[in-house]
Amino acid sequence: MTFFALMGALEQGLVYGIMVLGVYLTFRILDFPDLTVDGSLPLGAAVSAVCITQGMHPALSLLAAMAAGFLAGALTGLLNTKLGILHLLASILTMTALYSVNIRIMGGPNVSLLGVDTVLDPLMRTGLPGYYASPLLFAVLAAAVILALIWFLYTEMGQAMLATGDNRQMITSQGVDTHKVIILGVGLSNALVALAGGLIAQNQGAADVNMGVGTIVAGLASVIVGETVFGNRSLPRAVVAAVVGSIIYRVAIALALGLKIGSFSFTPSDLNLITALLVVVALTAPRLKKRFGKC
């Protein structure tokens, strides 16, 4: 693996790490498997890209992306809590609807950001090469999101969210409206995913309606790999593990893509297959360990 490939994987791992933090929030904290992310990642990209091409400051466009992501997540939460649709199905419905919405927002299947300023440009102007600038910026942002998320989870509201995912009857008896908590939590999660989407679009110079395919699987893979490798003994550790998992996941993907066996090599289109296999292995590893440990 070359140095550039490693920096590329690190950059991807960090920026997607923000998305993984969102997936962690729903999947682990709220116990809410949320597939909205496959739609809210390109939603964030679309909103950010369109805002920038309309003349908005690129940093501000990220806030717009987060707001849009929050709404998408809140919609999933509403479908689940107020209309009583199964969480998984509710999120699939939002995700499906977002495909059309994203094309509407962009006025087509993609928007190019070539030649316009992005959040990365100020850093590049200092003379820092691109392969340093983007990992650096994403590392700072991912760290900020990690700190903010940990801080939030220790607030009164965050504690109520943890309790909602753990024991809904208990927290209801303590006077918390779990519907509101779920709507807020899934909203926040998708705001983070949309932020990642906006950053990815600005980094790669385009937003595309199909860029969200496989987001949830990559997110789950990262969460699980992170927990397995880095551990989840305490809450802060589990939050950090999500981003660590994301980096490991991207490095593993980069290694797999660089693999050559005779005339066979993986192509980027094999990514989803590799990811799905990785998740299956990560999910069944504890069970396999138990079974073979007994023999």
């Binding site: 220790y154 607030t155 009164e156 509201m157 504690q159 943890l162 309790a163 208990m170 303590q174």
Partner: peptide, 20 residues
């Protein structure tokens, strides 16, 4: 402590101040 803090705020608004 966290469980008790959740109970201590029964019926009250839960904001962004420390949970415990």
């Amino acid at each position: 402590a966290q469980n008790m803090a959740l109970a201590l705020r029964r019926g009250k608004w839960r904001g962004l101040t420390r949970g415990v």
